[in-house]
Amino acid sequence: MKIAIPVDEKNMEANVNVSFARAPYFLIYDTETKETIFLDNSAAASTGGAGIKAAQTIVDNKADALLTPRCGEKAAEVLKSADIKIYKTTFASVKDNIDAFIARKLSILDEIHAGFHGQVGN
């Protein structure tokens, strides 16, 4: 199973980023093969619709689940269309969250926020 996590740095010692859509990188982790891929998040600098673009990246990399502290409603809609489950991270470290996920200790993220709009401009 492939899981995606927004991360601060491109290594396994990194912390989970506080934001999904605006995270600098994504980790795609394969729980069977232990393979790790770090992706640049091209959505991070978007003026608007970053969640949609970030979610598209997760979809395109064929993740089955996203582990994130928070997620906006448009990103959630894209992920839902792709049947990608969203789990809430409970630790700062990426590793701890992966372990918790494998141990089935992470719960589904049910607080989907309405996004941080208003900086979009006219």
Binding site: T47, G48, I52, Q56, V59, K74, S81, A82, V120
Partner: peptide, 23 residues
């Protein structure tokens, strides 16, 4: 279309294009 849209109003998921009208 998805690549062109500067406002990220389009997404392509599972052989379907999704348009976010308000964006």
């Amino acid at each position: 279309c998805v690549d062109f849209c500067k406002f990220n109003a389009l997404a392509y998921v599972k052989d379907k294009l999704i348009a976010f009208e308000e964006l």
